[in-house]
Amino acid sequence: MLRRTLLPLAAVLLALWLWLGATPSDGPVVRTALVMGTLVEIKAYGADPNRLDTAITEAFAEMARLEQLFSAHLEQSEIRQLSAARGVRTVSSEVAELLILGQMVARRSQGAFDMGLGRLVALWDLQSESPKVPSGEQIGAALRGTGPESLTINGQQVKKTDPALQLDLGGIAKGYAVDRAVAVLRQAGVKSAAVNAGGDIRLLGDRLGEDWRIGIQHPRKAGEVMATIALRDRSVVTSGDYERFFEQDGRRYHHLLDPRTGYPARGCQSVTVIAGDAALADALATAAFVLGPRAGLALLERMTDVEGFVITDDGQRLVTTGLDGQLQWF
């Protein structure tokens, strides 16, 4: 009788021990850093916290390195040098890769996405203490020479059609850096992680065997979530008119500038794009926002393996067909 009770008991304890060993109940390693002018949070799950920490350090280092290449503020950045250059210039493979992707989005969006708006961005200067609306002549001058064909890219050889063109990779560089950070994490053997650069999110694997739950910021209620969606191994980027803006004479002037007019794009409050990589999602979110609700949604529908939704200026929600029913609204 004793043996009959002890044996199952021992078996159960053994199973318990195995089960405990197989599922580490460790929390994630989470670190934040200020990179590329924004707050970047990297969260990684795994059995060995020290290894995760090392991997995260490497990922942050990679993002800091890319900032040195892409920044429009740092004197010695490749983008600044390219902006200053006349004639053909050889760029690093990273910059070339990014410019080619950006040009693809620029063409697919009929110029709604533009990497040549450096002068226009500087003119609006939303980062300054007291930004104001520039004059029509100033805007016209700042738009000269822009457009999808303003860059000729041939391998790593880049040529600006107009030597005065100033590059600004604001709508794509952050996403690209997130992609690179995830690549570094993956290379370091991390299986489950998320990189969130001020709302540009890329997910690596799942979270403890489940989908990651992504909250989408409400465009008009600060700190509130408008919707959530469950995803894994995807990127999510939201562009909204609430991120950087000022108000003058009762109008909101935000940072998502329309290259066709030189003024902040009208029609949307926010656009969220879900895609394989964050750089593409980042560029498409900007492009769709600039195009406006209907044309923006149509652009997202046209792209393969891309989903998203638009919040119009009157608060309407337009969702791509592939995403319908997957969002949980609040």
């Binding site: 009788m1 004793l2 009959r4 009770t5 199952p8 008991l9």
Partner: peptide, 9 residues
């Protein structure tokens, strides 16, 4: 006691 253990387990 043994019976109680048997029932529980």
């Amino acid at each position: 006691a043994q019976a109680a253990w048997t029932v529980t387990l």
